[in-house]
Write a protein that binds this DNA or RNA. Structure first.
Lengths: 249, 249
DNA sequence: CGAGGGTTTGAAGTGCATCAAATAGTGTGG
DNA sequence: CCACACTATTTGATGCACTTCAAACCCTCG
């Protein structure tokens, strides 16, 4: 197969792996070995990939759909760590945590994923030091991402966090009028940003009043992205446009 | 011991490096090479090691004193990332960030540190794949630590966060009566936990009322650590006792 | 059309921040 | 050893942001 399963319209394991940055440095044989051990799987909305502390034999790459990473407290509260879209990797750090997943993962809508044995990843790291280095790099990048996340949660208001979220899904070098489509439920975005749905709704209105964006259901329109960035980024230590930190797990 | 500078009472670079976990896998020659390129330096209270986005030529290991890592927003707000004590490493991830420091660092009291050229670290990573692997491991561990931090900030109350902080500095397997000495200013602890000094003071009183701990200045005494953990850990997804995640940068 | 989810709005409560001021603690010079 | 200056900490009063609970609205889809 060149790159498509003609029957499903889904890319082949090898072609999926090929577009994930951390595998860039892998040789063809490396990649094909990995692909041979991988499997395309389907998870319907609400299905759980794994729970925090489960034994980890596979990690995943999102091919289609959205995946929620989260942790739950004894109180029954849920902390959403991230919502992942296409080409994001999850569960791979289990290899550094006693082969247990450090968070839970659930399909928030029907998903196609590539599942890969963690064992194959471990072998790859040991065998290919350039790959290990790339992995370190990705880890460092994600770490910075998290530091920013911590900062946002403590310094930004709800409205600013929403603005920041919109900036991240907007084309960052955009000029003039922009139209953004919210990628998933407002309720889920709220959870992702660590606030209640009610707060999200009200804060979005406040953001509209402050920045002149226009909201219509899941579509958000604005004349100039800078209205948003001057409102949101003043409470952030990174300068706009922020480097894109999204393409990592 | 052979490894002490008799004149200063400060350990030699080699002996400092030897007790840092990530260097465990280094060979003697590796370690001595690193030590030869390192330098003991003194920073008085308030002195800045570096600012966020500065060009990074050195990373550091805390030998004595306390170091604050933080970032500042345009608004002038400060987000404290961490307070580091002896044997903690900082600034090393600059090698993955364009040789720029991803945060600012300042001595919160008179400090002795070991400064090491980042170049030497890079060489070590490339030359010693086992070391690279260890670094990955440390990175993964820190990442989990951060995930917990994010969770704490969104799900725990101020009083619970303080309790959690106390649990982390207490001997975790302790039984019966315990006495803890706060390691630095209450104001600084407050900043570390993302709250105002006033809030810290009030929340600490609340914690006392709820858990029966006794507070006297910087000393905190309790009869059973479990009073604290049942109060604080109910809003956390990790079970007490939490794994010790402190010995990482 | 009606059921059920997602979303918004209203009213009230809670927790933390803020501003102001009192108090305790620490180090200094006399 | 004491008085003073200065800082850390606590306390009080008030305000704001977010949450909570309740109910309405809206949209989609059978």
């Amino acid at each position: 197969m060149a790159s498509q399963h003609s029957s499903t319209g889904i890319a082949s394991p090898a072609s999926i792996l090929a577009r994930i940055p951390i595998f860039d440095v892998c040789s063809e044989p490396n990649l094909h070995d990995l692909a041979a051990k991988s499997m395309i799987r389907y998870y319907e909305k609400g299905k759980v990939f794994f729970l925090s502390d489960d034994a980890a034999d596979y990690f995943y790459i999102v091919v289609k759909g959205w995946v929620k990473l989260f942790r739950e407290t004894l109180d029954g509260e849920q902390a959403v760590i991230d919502i992942l879209s296409q080409d994001h990797v999850f569960g791979e750090t289990s290899i550094f945590h006693n082969h247990e997943y450090p968070y839970s993962a659930e399909a928030v809508e029907d998903c196609t994923v590539l599942s890969i044995p963690t064992k194959a990843l471990e072998q790859l790291i040991v065998a290919n030091s350039e790959f290990a280095l790339g992995m370190l790099q990705a880890m460092a990048k994600y770490r910075k991402h998290q530091e920013r996340e911590i900062e946002h949660r403590s310094l930004q208001s709800a409205a600013q966090r929403i603005g920041c979220f919109l900036l991240r899904i907007a084309p960052q070098n955009a000029h003039g009028r922009i139209n953004i489509h919210l990628p998933y439920d407002k309720t889920l975005i709220a959870a992702r940003l660590g606030m209640q749905p009610e707060t999200f709704s009200r804060a979005l209105n406040k953001l509209r009043d402050e920045t002149g964006i226009r909201i219509n259901g899941a579509s958000v329109e604005m004349d100039d992205i800078r209205h948003l960035s001057s409102f949101s980024c003043s409470a952030c230590s990174s300068n706009f446009p922020c480097e894109d930190l999204s393409k990592n797990d």
